[in-house]
């Protein structure tokens, strides 16, 4: 996995690319660590360029969502495609993390 950060005021959009699996764990922890210091109020995970996510990847979304809640940051997902969209729909993840399809 690989990602680009776009900040606009207190909104941070993270554009994710590649695969979100167990291997993305370190990147996710880095992302969460940076929230605190950057004064972010809203965070959007843009998934349009993610071509694969497994259940461990879903687990990372849960972890990020919980961390956001604790930090008082709103957290949402955007534009999942293909297998990632299927997985989010099957798992109804949009019912616990707001998702713009």
């Amino acid at each position: 996995m690989d990602y680009t950060v776009h900040d606009s005021g207190t909104l941070r959009e993270l554009e994710m690319r590649g695969q979100i699996t167990f291997e993305a764990d370190t990147d996710f922890r880095t992302i969460l660590g940076e929230w605190e210091t950057a004064g972010i109020a809203d965070c959007v995970l843009n998934l349009s360029a993610v071509d694969y996510m497994d259940s461990a990847g879903l687990g990372l979304l849960v972890m990020a969502n919980n961390a956001a809640r604790q930090a008082g940051i709103t957290f949402r997902l955007k534009h999942p495609r293909g297998q990632v969209r299927d997985l989010i729909e099957i798992s109804e993840f949009h019912t616990i993390i707001p998702c713009e399809f």
């Binding site: 729909e89 099957i90 798992s91 109804e92 019912t95 616990i96």
Partner: peptide, 13 residues
């Protein structure tokens, strides 16, 4: 069809 939150995530699912 298949839809539903995985078990163990949210109490009120």
């Amino acid at each position: 069809p298949s839809c539903g939150l995985p078990l163990g995530l949210a109490g009120g699912a």
